[in-house]
């Protein structure tokens, strides 16, 4: 009598093939693809973070090497507007040059003491200062020279000289001084820029 062949092993084999296929196709391979995509994304982010970290480390060494230049830069262009400091500086210069400033008008920017005209945009960090200064010609030219050589940066936008009958001069000056503005708009690449700036210096 012919022995009847069992079909169970064949079914088990087919079942295993199907299970292996389904497992691979619907679970392992999609997960693998997702993981590879995530790895690429994280790798990209990691590269950026490392670059920023390196940039910060370079910036630190650069700022350290610049030493007092950085502090001088922050005096020239401070982070916040301080109208009192502006007035004090100009009055000290006027006194040193034997000239007199009767009044000031400061506009733009945002005074840290809250006393300035805040109607203008603060993003540029420009602060406009207008005033008249009186004195002899040598005093006025000395005043202008002192303003332009002051550690705090002043740019004279316009000057109007009017001689008086008594031999003195009245000069109306419009200056601009600057604050750092909105530093949050500077990207992380600032650190690398610091390095290039320092190199240029």
């Amino acid at each position: 009598m012919e022995k009847k062949k069992s079909s169970t092993p064949g079914f088990i084999a087919v079942f295993l093939v199907i299970v292996a296929f389904l497992l691979s196709w619907f679970w392992i391979i999609p997960q693998y693809k997702q993981n590879k995509a995530d790895v690429a994304q994280v790798d990209h982010e990691l590269t950026a973070v490392k670059a920023k970290l390196d940039s910060l480390k370079t910036a630190k060494s650069t700022l350290d090497s610049l030493g007092s230049t950085v502090d001088s830069m922050f005096v020239a262009v401070p982070s916040d507007q301080d109208n009192g400091d502006i007035i004090t500086t100009l009055e000290a210069i006027a006194t040193a040059n034997k000239t007199y400033i009767p009044s000031f008008q400061i506009s733009g920017g945002s005074d840290s003491s809250g006393t300035s005209d805040q109607s203008q945009s603060t993003s540029t960090g420009a602060v406009s200062v207008s005033f008249s200064v009186s004195g002899d010609f040598a005093g006025l030219t000395g005043f202008v020279k002192s303003i332009e050589s002051n550690l705090k940066f002043f740019a004279i936008k316009s000057a109007t000289i009017a001689p008086a009958d008594d031999g003195t001069f009245s000069t109306t000056l419009q200056l601009e001084t600057y604050t750092q503005g909105d530093t949050s708009t500077i990207s992380g690449g600032a650190s690398a820029d610091v390095m290039s700036t320092a190199t240029a210096q």
Partner: peptide, 25 residues
């Protein structure tokens, strides 16, 4: 980072202002 950003901003401001500055002394 804050210090570096501030320094960079100060340098940018000075650079821009210096270009248009007309020295009158």
């Amino acid at each position: 980072e804050t210090r570096a950003n501030q320094f960079q901003s100060a340098v940018n401001q000075l650079s821009t202002a210096s270009k248009s500055r007309f020295s009158m002394d």
